[in-house]
Design a protein around this nucleic acid. Structure first.
Lengths: 228, 228
DNA sequence: AAAATAGTGTCTGTGAGACAATATCAG
DNA sequence: CTGATATTGTCTCACAGACACTATTTT
């Protein structure tokens, strides 16, 4: 007579787009409006049940693709949530394995995706369904930590970028301004950047050198896990 | 016709005991011998299916108690493993939420626990069942990282301890010797230690001051997760 | 006194951060 | 030339690590 336990996979998806009022780059998250009870009408993380023959990360990538039509540049497991009291309104017992992902701005602008999907500024979310507010908060915490010691910010940018562009990603994630001179030195000292001989011209100022990331270095260190 | 997916919880349990040859403190892990196929006879992490009304962490604590008769000083979720190819020998699909835990040496010596349970030096394990070798490797990596920036080492010690005792914990975890003078300064500067006015006497040397940890500071920073 | 560990002092190198100065583009 | 941002230079401070030195106990 075991109550059935369902495994679901949800994903916190981050993209960088201009903030609606300040126009400065900010973190955005797509959410899905619930069309059924419980929490009908509330916004929730995209997700769904784990398919029988599907890996956890594959399931996250699939539901990301289905809700946003995007392919993640980076995808990492966040946490498994499984308390028996997560959805007190229902008899169902759901264990959610939550991933977080990063997509590129061009992609994020393109497919606005289906109805019932809407992008929100990550720091100005409404109250979400279930424990999803807590989950997003945790994902933000992880992202803000990881941007400081990995080259994960690259997942928000294209193949090449200027140091100013990379700095603005860091500033958006960390929500504070960074000294251009010191930022440059840190990035150069990290050994993760490769200078190209191309420049970004067009601004009313000195052109900026374009860099790319060293592809031989992983976006982030997951320890002995090579990509579950 | 969904193939049923079972949720299991396993735990990597660490304790500090003298290494059998060097007698220096080393990390030990209790393993359970499998009595059924697949992998019969091999050693595996303690664990079992998630009970219907049980939280994930509660399940980990319970199976830890059942296999070792111990209560963890620290318990944290490690990762959820759920690839469809984890146990190719069976038709079953199991998603394992793995925790890691730390127990105190006195406790670890006491209840040697049931038959089919045996303690191993963490760095000298045999080939384990399923993907458990990878899991232990990852848990070791997390422990070694976390000991450097949290007061997690306290979980291996009693209420009060000398700086030498704390240093030997760090040395055992990190597998290298640490300068006593610099270690002292780092610990004092961390603000996590509180000096008591008691001393540990008995050695053929100057008595060492006993410290305790500041209980207002969490053992480790799990971000916005307060103790899932 | 000798042995052993507790605890202090000091020096050096590295890196983060503040901030000044110079370079080079568009208009 | 002016305005703007790129890029370089310099200074200071904090901290990790190496290592010499002093303190206090047991035998």
């Amino acid at each position: 007579m075991d109550a059935p336990i369902t495994v679901a996979v949800s994903t916190v998806i981050f993209a960088l787009r201009p903030h609606p009022t300040t126009r400065r780059p900010a973190l955005w998250i797509p959410l899905v409006r619930r069309i059924r009870e419980p929490h009908r009408g509330r916004w929730a993380l995209p997700g769904g049940p784990l398919a029988a023959e599907e890996g956890l990360a594959a399931s996250a990538a699939r539901n990301l693709r289905e809700t946003t039509r995007l392919t993640p540049q980076y995808l990492e497991q966040l946490y498994a949530f499984g308390g028996p009291d997560r959805a007190p309104e229902t008899a169902e017992r759901i264990v959610s394995v939550v991933y977080w992902a990063m997509v590129r701005p061009e992609e994020a602008d393109a497919g606005a995706a289906g109805v019932n999907v809407q992008w929100f500024v990550a720091d100005e979310l409404p109250e979400l369904a279930f424990d999803h507010s807590l989950i997003v908060e945790y994902a933000l915490w992880r992202l803000r930590n990881k941007v400081e010691y990995s080259r994960i910010a690259a997942a928000f940018l294209g193949e090449t970028f200027t140091l100013a562009e990379l700095r603005r990603v860091h500033e958006a994630v960390l929500q504070r301004t960074l000294d251009p001179a010191n930022f440059r030195r840190q990035m150069e000292a990290s050994g993760r950047l490769v200078a190209t001989d191309a420049f970004r011209t067009g601004g009313r100022h000195r052109p900026a050198r374009l860099y790319r990331h060293d592809r031989s270095i992983h976006l982030a260190d997951n320890g002995p896990l090579t990509g579950q």
